[in-house]
Design a protein around this nucleic acid. Sequence first.
DNA 1: AACAGTTGCGAGCAGTGCTCACAGAATCGA
DNA 2: TCGATTCTGTGAGCACTGCTCGCAACTGTT
Lengths: 235, 235
Amino acid sequence: MSGSRLSPRDRYREQTRAEIKEIALRQLAEGGTTAVALTRIAKEVGLSGPALYRYFDSRDALLTDLIRDAYTDLAAAVGAAADALPADTSPRARLRALAAACRTWAVAQPHRYLLIEGTPVPGYSAPPDTLDSARAVLGPFLPAFAGGEPSAAVRPVAEQMRTWAAGDAAVAEWAARHVPAGDEAVALAGAVLAWTGLHGVIGLEVAGQFAGMGHDGATLLTAQFDALADAFGLR
Amino acid sequence: MSGSRLSPRDRYREQTRAEIKEIALRQLAEGGTTAVALTRIAKEVGLSGPALYRYFDSRDALLTDLIRDAYTDLAAAVGAAADALPADTSPRARLRALAAACRTWAVAQPHRYLLIEGTPVPGYSAPPDTLDSARAVLGPFLPAFAGGEPSAAVRPVAEQMRTWAAGDAAVAEWAARHVPAGDEAVALAGAVLAWTGLHGVIGLEVAGQFAGMGHDGATLLTAQFDALADAFGLR
DNA sequence: AACAGTTGCGAGCAGTGCTCACAGAATCGA
DNA sequence: TCGATTCTGTGAGCACTGCTCGCAACTGTT
């Protein structure tokens, strides 16, 4: 109970865990989810098969850890982009910047984006903190929509958000932390539409669907978000 | 060389091929792509392991066939929805109807949507006719944007489409078939944005990301497409 | 020095995709 | 009708996967 916060044994343990995850990440980048093979990881790290199970309960546990890491990493990237903006940035410019940050992160490491937002792994069940992570990513988008005046097109969504926030305390608290009172429903609607807009462009681009076509994700994204800003009457 | 268009042998062959695909589809629905196991398919169809390779060159060949089927099926659904519309349908209503048809198809069989638009299978390379299939799905969207007047937000996309169509004859021909001359660039921009809009909502919904949240895909989709119609000045 | 906890290994099980050599049946040509 | 060719199916086998078990060794503490 005295002094040392981490025994040397635990230190070593964390180190090899990190090494395992690093190799797994490389395999993921090279061949997708199914290419993450415990046996090959073990061989590469200098261990032999079953020894890996001393560090991860199962292959799914490893992947879950990678998913969690990817989420927090993406949230950090978006958060950093938000913090880098001057205080007087227009909502429209803010949306553009955040969306671009999101896309840049995803395009730089497609496999990690596919890991968190792509096809769910066959049997896997999402870790409970996934919702929190998703909220952490979308949080910086919320204030951009505060004070927005939704057009007729997106007003039904805002209406739906109102009943959602009323029923889900965690969501209401999350919205309240980013947005002045009264604007929650509109901001939530904006965030959700930003989410789908992001995924629409990034998801297709990352999956390689734009390959050989004459359009790139960047202009599509800014167009999408400019249109979204228009729909919310943002300057 | 006379009469019969299909020898009894070929008939039987096509029949078992269909049976194999049917079972594969069921396995896909139950456990995702990785759950499609040739061995179990063989057992279920009453054959023994290697016999399946008389009908499909490899597991990838089977999946490719399923992908092709899903694409043509989706294209047929969208096409049918387009044909069912009265001639005087407004562009906005047309967009809504087509988007809804697309989503209905996807939500009814999520696994098949994930198969065509989800995470690419590890090593697999898309069949060359995938592009044609994607165009077949999006074709009915094109005429809705003819005569549209793109706002500043989406104008850059239209500009990009112009150079794209100029460089890709197949795309130009495809656009010309659905839209009067002169409107190609705008219509292409609309179609591509419709594509990303569709995938943004449907992809997330089908992947189960909306589970436990207070919003449903239908209102999100119509909102997205209403906003898109606004961005193109459609009535 | 003795004890417990941790870490690692080898063998083994069940499952996967896939290849091979071989046997039987269906089909076609003479 | 007979013979040859093609097609279809089988069992054995290879290499790989995730994962479990029992046993040995090594570490840190008492």
